[in-house]
């Protein structure tokens, strides 16, 4: 009996060790592409085109300087920042309002409204690009950061609404009912009682919308062709379309595009995951 228990314990221990070995290998696999891009970005072109070295022999900032100064990537990053910030603000505001009534009220059009948001996530965005181009060029709205901001807000609203309604579902009804009894209107009860409770979730929703806008490429390529309105993804796109790709500069540009995402994700990761899983796990 005791012997049996011992072998079982030993087996358990081996399994735990194996688990951590696997987890470590997977971590290396996940991190490697990012580290490789980072390494490449510090290599001079002579080293990039030679045999593979895992650590740069003569690390240089040349690629970054080329991208930011000659490549105008500073301007592109600023354009991405402006359009994405505006889009995130609009999408989060819409999410706070619509998510609230979807999670708290019953009304006749609830299912159609919910479907309206869900369907936008299912259709290939390319079918909209051509008609949108026609619409926007007729209205003289191409080559504008404002237009990109509106399109990005449109792109991120459905997800913000669904995520926010998931966060509301985690707060007890009794809180705002007490406020209603005290004579608060619906709007005041929402903004003075519920919203302050959900600030972390709201921040996560905003960060998610920001990152999705920051990452967007195809609309920006289609609706912006003047250099001064290009976003960072458009800048990278024009580099990768070249016949002879300069991988050092390409890597530096990719790292520049990754850095804000990395900080924001690190900051809001916990709440973003909560928002992503809240609706589905409870559902």
């Amino acid at each position: 009996m005791a012997n049996n228990l011992n072998t079982r314990k030993a087996k358990q221990k081996t399994l735990t060790v194996l688990k951590f070995v696997f987890l470590f290998i997977y971590l290396v696999v996940v991190m490697f592409p990012f580290l490789w891009m980072l390494t490449t970005s510090f290599k001079p072109s002579s080293e990039i085109n030679g045999p593979v070295d895992y650590i740069p022999n003569n690390p240089t900032m040349e690629n970054y300087i080329n991208m930011l100064v000659k490549g105008n990537f500073g301007k592109y990053m600023l354009n991405s920042l402006i359009s994405s910030t505006f889009a995130a603000a609009v999408a989060t505001f819409c999410g706070i309002l619509a998510g609230y009534v979807i999670s708290r009220f019953n009304f006749r059009m609830k299912t159609p409204v919910y479907l309206l948001f869900m369907i936008t996530q299912m259709i290939p965005s390319f079918i909209m690009l051509a008609p949108l181009y026609q619409m926007l060029s007729k209205a003289g709205m191409t080559n504008s950061l404002g237009t990109l901001a509106i399109l990005y807000a449109n792109m991120t609203i459905p997800f913000s609404v669904v995520t926010m309604s998931g966060f509301y579902a985690g707060v007890s009804n009794s809180i705002e009912e007490a406020a209603w009894i005290d004579g608060c209107g619906y709007v005041r009860a929402l903004f003075s009682v519920i919203v302050p409770l959900l600030l972390p979730g709201i921040a996560a929703t905003a960060i998610f919308a920001f990152m999705n806008s920051w990452n967007e490429l195809f609309m920006a390529v289609m609706f912006v062709d003047m250099d001064k309105f290009k976003t960072i993804t458009v800048g990278l796109n024009s580099l990768i379309l070249k016949y002879n790709i300069k991988w050092g500069e390409m890597a530096a540009g990719t790292v520049l595009a990754l850095v804000p995402t990395m900080f924001l994700f690190g900051f809001a990761q916990k709440y973003m995951i909560e928002g992503l899983t809240a609706g589905s796990v409870k559902g």
Binding site: C94, L116, M128, P131, A153, N154, I157
Partner: peptide, 30 residues
């Protein structure tokens, strides 16, 4: 209550109707 619900939903619905559903229908025609 109904007016409140409508006003809360309106901003979130407006943009997708103009910039997703309208082009989608036009695309369907094309």
């Amino acid at each position: 209550r109904n007016i409140f619900i409508f006003c809360m939903l309106l901003p979130a619905i407006l943009l997708p109707l103009i910039f997703t559903y309208y082009p989608l229908i036009k695309g369907g025609v094309m």
